[in-house]
Amino acid sequence: RPMNAFMVWARIHRPALAKANPAANNAEISVQLGLEWNKLSEEQKKPYYDEAQKIKE
């Protein structure tokens, strides 16, 4: 299954978030990633939607 825009973004940002929160488990990191993603504007998300579309094609 191809990655969606959030997954493209999260793949880039997960390592830094995990390093900054070494005690957090994957579920907690995923929740935090979701919160951070939701704070982004549509303009900030656009490159990730574009990349996800390329992956689908």
Score class of each variant (00 low, 15 high):
residue 42 E to M: 12
residue 1 R to D: 12
residue 55 I to N: 09
residue 53 Q to I: 09
residue 54 K to T: 07
residue 49 Y to W: 06
residue 45 K to L: 02
residue 40 L to G: 00
residue 16 A to C: 13
residue 23 A to V: 06
residue 54 K to Q: 08
residue 50 D to M: 13
residue 32 Q to K: 12
residue 4 N to E: 11
residue 52 A to M: 07
residue 32 Q to E: 05
residue 14 R to I: 05
residue 26 N to P: 12
residue 12 I to T: 08
residue 44 Q to V: 04
residue 9 W to I: 02
residue 19 K to D: 04
residue 5 A to I: 02
residue 26 N to F: 15
residue 29 I to F: 02
residue 28 E to G: 03
residue 24 A to Q: 04
residue 40 L to M: 11
residue 32 Q to I: 15
residue 47 P to A: 05
residue 40 L to P: 00
residue 29 I to T: 02
residue 52 A to T: 03
residue 40 L to C: 02
residue 16 A to G: 09
residue 44 Q to D: 11
residue 37 W to F: 03
residue 53 Q to E: 11
residue 25 N to S: 15
residue 24 A to E: 03
residue 48 Y to C: 03
residue 13 H to P: 00
residue 4 N to D: 12
residue 41 S to A: 03
residue 8 V to Q: 04
residue 13 H to R: 13
residue 34 G to C: 15
residue 52 A to F: 11
residue 22 P to E: 03
residue 23 A to D: 14
residue 54 K to F: 06
residue 19 K to V: 06
residue 29 I to Y: 02
residue 1 R to A: 12
residue 42 E to Y: 14
residue 12 I to H: 07
residue 9 W to S: 01
residue 7 M to R: 08
residue 9 W to Y: 15
residue 39 K to T: 04
residue 46 K to Q: 11
residue 40 L to W: 02
residue 20 A to N: 08
residue 37 W to G: 00
residue 22 P to D: 03
residue 18 A to W: 05
residue 2 P to Q: 14
residue 6 F to I: 01
residue 25 N to V: 03
residue 57 E to R: 12
residue 37 W to E: 00
residue 34 G to H: 15
residue 17 L to D: 02
residue 3 M to E: 09
residue 50 D to H: 09
residue 45 K to E: 00
residue 43 E to W: 08
residue 19 K to Y: 05
residue 25 N to M: 04
residue 13 H to W: 11
residue 24 A to P: 03
residue 23 A to T: 13
residue 47 P to G: 03
residue 43 E to R: 10
residue 16 A to F: 12
residue 36 E to D: 06
residue 18 A to P: 01
residue 23 A to R: 13
residue 10 A to E: 12
residue 41 S to V: 02
residue 10 A to G: 02
residue 44 Q to Y: 05
residue 48 Y to Q: 00
residue 6 F to G: 00
residue 51 E to M: 15
residue 56 K to Q: 13
residue 10 A to T: 03
residue 24 A to G: 03
residue 38 N to G: 10
residue 9 W to D: 01
residue 13 H to Y: 09
residue 18 A to R: 14
residue 34 G to E: 15
residue 26 N to T: 13
residue 15 P to R: 10
residue 43 E to C: 07
residue 45 K to M: 03
residue 38 N to R: 12
residue 57 E to G: 10
residue 35 L to Q: 09
residue 20 A to C: 07
residue 32 Q to P: 00
residue 53 Q to G: 06
residue 54 K to M: 08
residue 22 P to N: 04
residue 40 L to Y: 02
residue 45 K to Q: 06
residue 13 H to A: 11
residue 32 Q to W: 10
residue 39 K to C: 06
residue 6 F to R: 01
residue 27 A to D: 12
residue 27 A to H: 12
residue 30 S to E: 15
residue 55 I to S: 06
residue 33 L to P: 01
residue 52 A to C: 06
residue 43 E to K: 10
residue 55 I to W: 07
residue 35 L to H: 07
residue 31 V to W: 12
residue 32 Q to R: 14
residue 51 E to K: 11
residue 39 K to A: 09
residue 49 Y to Q: 05
residue 33 L to S: 00
residue 12 I to C: 09
residue 47 P to L: 05
residue 41 S to R: 04
residue 35 L to M: 10
residue 49 Y to M: 07
residue 13 H to N: 08
residue 13 H to K: 06
residue 12 I to S: 06
residue 16 A to W: 08
residue 42 E to T: 11
residue 27 A to S: 10
residue 26 N to H: 13
residue 24 A to M: 15
residue 21 N to R: 07
residue 41 S to Y: 02
residue 37 W to A: 00
residue 3 M to A: 12
residue 19 K to N: 07
residue 8 V to W: 06
residue 5 A to K: 00
residue 29 I to H: 02
residue 44 Q to E: 13
residue 31 V to A: 13
residue 11 R to N: 11
residue 16 A to D: 07
residue 49 Y to I: 09
residue 17 L to M: 11
residue 31 V to E: 09
residue 21 N to Y: 13
residue 46 K to V: 04
residue 51 E to S: 06
residue 30 S to C: 15
residue 24 A to D: 02
residue 48 Y to G: 00
residue 51 E to G: 04
residue 18 A to F: 05
residue 40 L to V: 02
residue 46 K to C: 05
residue 38 N to L: 12
residue 2 P to C: 15
residue 46 K to S: 06
residue 36 E to Q: 10
residue 24 A to H: 05
residue 37 W to L: 00
residue 16 A to Y: 11
residue 55 I to C: 09
residue 7 M to W: 15
residue 40 L to T: 01
residue 56 K to I: 12
residue 52 A to P: 02
residue 54 K to A: 09
residue 53 Q to V: 10
residue 7 M to V: 08
residue 14 R to F: 14
residue 33 L to Q: 01
residue 51 E to L: 15
residue 23 A to Y: 12
residue 9 W to R: 01
residue 38 N to H: 08
residue 16 A to R: 14
residue 33 L to V: 02
residue 27 A to W: 14
residue 31 V to L: 11
residue 57 E to D: 12
residue 41 S to C: 03
residue 46 K to M: 07
residue 45 K to A: 02
residue 51 E to R: 12
residue 48 Y to F: 11
residue 42 E to W: 15
residue 20 A to T: 07
residue 11 R to G: 08
residue 39 K to G: 05
residue 1 R to S: 11
residue 10 A to F: 06
residue 43 E to S: 09
residue 51 E to I: 15
residue 26 N to E: 15
residue 49 Y to N: 03
residue 29 I to N: 01
residue 55 I to Y: 10
residue 39 K to W: 03
residue 42 E to L: 12
residue 8 V to L: 15
residue 18 A to Y: 05
residue 56 K to T: 13
residue 39 K to R: 10
residue 39 K to Y: 04
residue 28 E to W: 15
residue 3 M to V: 13
residue 44 Q to I: 04
residue 13 H to T: 09
residue 24 A to S: 07
residue 27 A to Q: 11
residue 46 K to L: 07
residue 56 K to S: 12
residue 10 A to S: 09
residue 6 F to H: 01
residue 30 S to Y: 15
residue 5 A to W: 02
residue 16 A to K: 14
residue 39 K to D: 04
residue 34 G to F: 15
residue 4 N to W: 10
residue 30 S to V: 11
residue 24 A to V: 03
residue 10 A to R: 03
residue 36 E to A: 10
residue 48 Y to A: 00
residue 54 K to Y: 06
residue 13 H to F: 12
residue 5 A to E: 05
residue 27 A to E: 11
residue 51 E to F: 14
residue 49 Y to R: 10
residue 54 K to C: 08
residue 50 D to S: 06
residue 12 I to D: 08
residue 51 E to N: 04
residue 4 N to T: 15
residue 57 E to A: 12
residue 46 K to R: 11
residue 14 R to S: 05
residue 2 P to M: 14
residue 41 S to P: 05
residue 9 W to F: 15
residue 19 K to R: 13
residue 55 I to T: 08
residue 50 D to N: 08
residue 53 Q to Y: 07
residue 46 K to N: 03
residue 42 E to S: 10
residue 4 N to L: 14
residue 31 V to Q: 10
residue 56 K to A: 13
residue 32 Q to H: 05
residue 17 L to E: 01
residue 38 N to D: 10
residue 8 V to C: 08
residue 8 V to R: 07
residue 30 S to W: 15
residue 47 P to R: 05
residue 45 K to H: 01
residue 36 E to P: 00
residue 43 E to L: 10
residue 18 A to M: 13
residue 20 A to L: 11
residue 51 E to D: 04
residue 46 K to Y: 03
residue 38 N to Y: 07
residue 7 M to K: 06
residue 14 R to P: 00
residue 31 V to S: 07
residue 34 G to I: 15
residue 34 G to N: 14
residue 26 N to D: 15
residue 9 W to M: 01
residue 29 I to W: 02
residue 8 V to M: 08
residue 29 I to C: 02
residue 44 Q to C: 06
residue 30 S to I: 14
residue 12 I to F: 05
residue 25 N to R: 06
residue 29 I to L: 11
residue 27 A to V: 09
residue 23 A to H: 14
residue 45 K to T: 02
residue 30 S to P: 01
residue 22 P to M: 03
residue 24 A to W: 15
residue 57 E to L: 12
residue 19 K to E: 08
residue 39 K to F: 04
residue 1 R to I: 13
residue 44 Q to H: 06
residue 25 N to T: 15
residue 27 A to T: 09
residue 25 N to H: 05
residue 14 R to W: 14
residue 5 A to N: 00
residue 44 Q to W: 02
residue 47 P to S: 04
residue 43 E to F: 07
residue 18 A to C: 10
residue 29 I to P: 00
residue 22 P to K: 04
residue 57 E to M: 11
residue 26 N to G: 10
residue 57 E to Q: 12
residue 22 P to L: 04
residue 19 K to F: 07
residue 24 A to L: 15
residue 13 H to D: 00
residue 43 E to M: 10
residue 52 A to L: 08
residue 34 G to K: 15
residue 3 M to D: 12
residue 48 Y to M: 01
residue 41 S to Q: 03
residue 17 L to R: 03
residue 2 P to W: 14
residue 52 A to K: 02
residue 13 H to C: 08
residue 55 I to E: 07
residue 42 E to R: 12
residue 20 A to Y: 04
residue 3 M to T: 10
residue 41 S to H: 02
residue 3 M to C: 15
residue 48 Y to V: 00
residue 37 W to I: 00
residue 12 I to Y: 09
residue 40 L to D: 00
residue 23 A to G: 13
residue 25 N to Q: 06
residue 36 E to F: 08
residue 13 H to M: 14
residue 53 Q to T: 09
residue 6 F to Q: 02
residue 44 Q to A: 11
residue 22 P to T: 03
residue 36 E to V: 08
residue 3 M to F: 11
